[in-house]
Design a protein around this nucleic acid. Structure first.
Lengths: 178, 178
DNA sequence: GTCTATAGCTCGATAGAC
DNA sequence: GTCTATCGAGCTATAGAC
């Protein structure tokens, strides 16, 4: 996962992973039939990681607005990694979306998991009418921020855009409360 | 440019370009010393294209708010291409940002060109205080939208997020006018 | 300047000893 | 199950005829 994240999927060779893990090259093909299968396993890991993250937020926090803040703050706390290699999920989606097939669909499905969570929070905040649009916009701004953060290798960008996103959410929620 | 855009830089071979253009493989190395030099030429083309686009908007339209709308509408009109292959500039930046060196820096510089234009419009709208942050946020939301649009291959996503972005701009500008 | 052929290398995947 | 050696395909880049 670490090597795929740092270098991207296509640019990472099995020899790279073998060197970093100490696992001999041939062993991978005992557990994974192809490099694509290895990629699918990584995507599956991200999926379960996302689900457990969201579940823990929903259990430990009853305020939907606070949960949306946690989502944004997570990316701000990760800003150093984002500046170095971008969002691990976003760059996976971007790289694999262009090639059709199983891998691209599996990666894109990670966005569905995120969108479902965000939509739930906006609905709970009284914006069930446009929850889907608001979720799309929030995911877009966070993903775009991490792309720019990575492009300029400047962690502060993620934080600056993140603060704007928090303010934007409040304008959307306040207009519903009125 | 078309093949790089559809397939990405790394995944595109010179044989692909030769097949699509009818230019024999060896000829490329008469005009470009390496594949990287060919990539730099493509980036340079995008840069001049961006500059002429922005200049034409500034000449034909005196309202900065209208110019920001034009920027968003451009991505909406391009939604079909975005759904198929993502933003040509954004995917270039994403792919090349991870590898250091000339190519990544040149690609990221395209974002600087866009940000400078957006910043100018926000400043003209009376938000000189936070023009840089607003420009970052607008670029982020448009780039993120195109990533999601591409991930799900659904052109409508770009339009839905674009409308949200237009509304967001107005809330930022109105608060300055008050 | 244009084109063909191919060198030199790297990668994913496999064979087969242990 | 673990590991080494290597095959075959495909890539960038070059050599050299025209």
């Amino acid at each position: 996962m670490a090597v795929f994240y740092r270098q991207g999927f296509a640019r990472t060779t099995l020899a790279d992973i073998a060197a970093e893990t100490g696992v001999p090259l041939g062993n991978f093909y005992y557990y994974f039939r192809t490099k694509e299968a290895l990629g699918l396993a990584v995507i599956e890991h991200y999926r379960t990681w996302l689900r457990s993250r969201f579940q823990s937020w929903e259990e430990s926090n009853s305020d939907p607005l606070r949960r949306l803040d946690l989502f944004i703050e997570m990316t701000i706390e990760d800003a150093d990694r984002l500046a170095a290699s971008g969002c691990p999920i976003g760059s996976l989606v971007q790289e694999l979306a262009k090639e059709d097939g199983t891998l691209g669909a599996a990666a894109s499905d990670l966005f569905s998991v995120i969108l479902t969570f965000l939509e739930g929070q906006f609905s709970a905040l009284g914006r069930a009418d446009h929850a889907a649009d608001l979720a799309l916009s929030l995911l877009a701004i966070v993903q775009g921020a991490s792309l720019i953060t990575n492009a300029f290798h400047q962690p502060t960008i993620q934080s600056r855009v993140g603060q704007q996103a928090k303010r934007w959410i409040r304008t959307q929620v306040d207009s519903a409360t009125l």
